[in-house]
Nucleic acid binder design. Structure first.
Lengths: 328, 328
DNA sequence: CCTATCTAGGAAAAGCTATTCCTTGAATGG
DNA sequence: CCATTCAAGGAATAGCTTTTCCTAGATAGG
């Protein structure tokens, strides 16, 4: 049960194999009648060109490598889905590569992908600080999604600073003036950016932050603990650096009898559905639109593959999803 | 900057290209000195064979398709990581395919993968009921991971029934005799299996379940609600069908002043780290070893690619992770 | 010394497609 | 009527590797 090749199509249509190729690709000078005959033969035989042969000949494989450094964690998944979606629409297949932050694995993957003649690379993963740029054949375009490479390199990032800003603006808009901030480790760039956007928005409204930003961990435990400390400042709203933190905060508030949102409004970050929806009450949260980040990254990559020069950093706007923890 | 081909190696070593190939692959009859010369030339030039050409010629591409029906959700991710891990060790690359449960997308992916001459397929995804078998070229082996196909087909599944059993056995072992069960929708095969294993283990110990199994949703909200109902039965332990349900249950127990685990012990299901660890207190939970499921599926696939006949259904044992919600 | 056998390695085909260059026949223009 | 141009399609090449088959030389045996 051999697969049908263009040779079979050519024979069935009574033309040479070069002619069959031209007919199917709309190239060269052929009579319309001939084109039709070839097209019908191809249809009848169920012909599909062999991508391997095409790639070998043309140098374009219609594949890209999707490299993640953090084992497709909670954040890279949506990015990767968005990317795969945008690429799939362009009929490009995706090689999945999980480097686990191991430079050696990364090197091997890059070699493999280069050997397989991928048309481009998308690199994604957790970001603490700008990551080392992937060292690949410079002729193959690379787009970073959600991570920023050192030095040069095209990147698509969520807008953490903007996310902090819209959270603050929302809390101000619903009338809160004593707004505290509890967030993750300060060594995370994302945590610093969110805090900066948050403070900038308060400052623009002439409001002082309610106590200094509390940096800690991304965990519920830290949320519970920090909320306890924060209560001394008598906040009427708390902006949390993650939904997990927000849940911890909510636990403590409930335990001491503060009502959410009447006494203290709460806004989380990540809009992680099972966390945000399962909370009591359901959490307002900033959504970084990670799928969109992936989609945009893929589009940039497609443009680069198409020959456009790659640009610098592109930020995708975050969006606030309002639920009961901050009114609504 | 052309890539170096075997032709370059052959020229550098002063042999024909066929001879170079044999030298590099350990085939044919060659003098040891010649082999070395070729090997050194290849090394010096940094030669790596073109997988496209190899695949075109031999029909083996050293790629497999990884198809998920549920957008690489929380359950398919670990499976896919385990599979990728096992395959990567075998130097096989993975095409990522997200069908979103759309038969049309699935068909297109299968076509694409077949055209690209993948050596095999792994199908994974949410499982409510046995899924329709993927209709692919019967010459290419398929292994289902975490989903079971209708009729024939090799599958690797987590052991839901065993998971229910070990949860019950653990609760019995710590002295609980009034054990209730709150779980997800009854239409999920997994929910029914867990309940069955749970009841079987109780029965084997001569213990009556504390009230009938409560089927509902996989959500915290359902956990809160069902826990309220269940309290009338005065349970001293509750086995929950998911960690989310367990968290809801914990909320209610706390709200009515029942201590965990002193008054009521709790065991969840999934061992979903952020949920289980963030809970108050941290949850004991059944871990389905999904990475292992993926790994085993990949190994089965590799065996099938290697020519072994594919077997039937293989179950991977679940494991109980004990945390504070049930003693320890 | 001649033939059979073995060794080392070369030539060529197969796997499949896209493109460049040619060829052939017809049509057009002078 | 002859030369030129154009249309239609064929032949061949490139892209890269592996394997089969073959050849040339050497060695061994009779």
């Amino acid at each position: 049960m051999r697969r049908v090749t263009i040779k079979d199509v050519a024979a069935a249509a009574g033309v040479s194999i070069g002619t069959a190729s031209k007919a199917l690709n709309g190239q060269g000078k052929l009579r319309a009648e001939t084109r039709d005959r070839v097209a019908q033969a191809a249809e009848r035989l169920g012909f599909a060109p062999n991508p391997l042969a095409q790639a070998l000949l043309t140098g374009r494989s219609y594949t890209v490598g999707l490299i993640t450094t953090d084992s497709f964690g909670r954040f890279s998944i949506p990015v990767m889905l968005g990317a795969e979606d945008a690429l799939g629409a362009g009929l490009i297949s995706v090689f999945m590569c999980d480097t686990r932050d191991d430079p050696d694995r990364e090197r091997r993957y890059i070699e493999m992908l280069t050997a397989r003649r991928v048309d481009g690379l998308i690199v994604t993963g957790r970001r603490i600080e700008p990551r080392l740029a992937v060292r690949a054949d410079p002729s193959i375009p690379v787009v970073y999604a959600m991570t920023q490479p050192e030095g040069e390199g095209a990147a698509v990032l969520p807008d953490d600073e903007g996310g902090g800003r819209i959270a603050a603006e929302h809390l101000l808009a619903i009338g809160r003036r004593r707004v505290a901030h509890i967030t993750g480790p300060e060594r995370f760039l994302a945590a610093r950016l969110r805090a900066r956007g948050f403070q900038a928005a308060l400052g623009a409204a002439g409001v002082e932050p309610c106590g200094a930003a509390r940096f800690g961990e991304w965990s519920e435990r830290w949320g519970r603990e920090a909320a306890g400390q924060s209560l001394a400042d008598r906040p009427d709203a708390i902006f949390c650096g993650s939904d997990q933190i927000a849940r911890g905060v909510a636990d403590t508030l409930r335990a001491v009898g503060r009502r959410i949102p009447e006494d203290v409004a709460l806004v989380g970050f990540d809009n992680w559905a099972p966390m945000a929806l399962g909370a009591l009450p359901p959490l307002s949260s900033v959504d970084m639109s990670l799928e969109e980040v992936g989609r945009v990254a893929a589009e940039h990559l497609l443009a680069a593959i198409g020959g456009d020069r790659l640009g610098g950093v592109h930020k995708v706007a975050s969006q606030l999803v309002v639920r009961e923890s901050s009114g609504a």
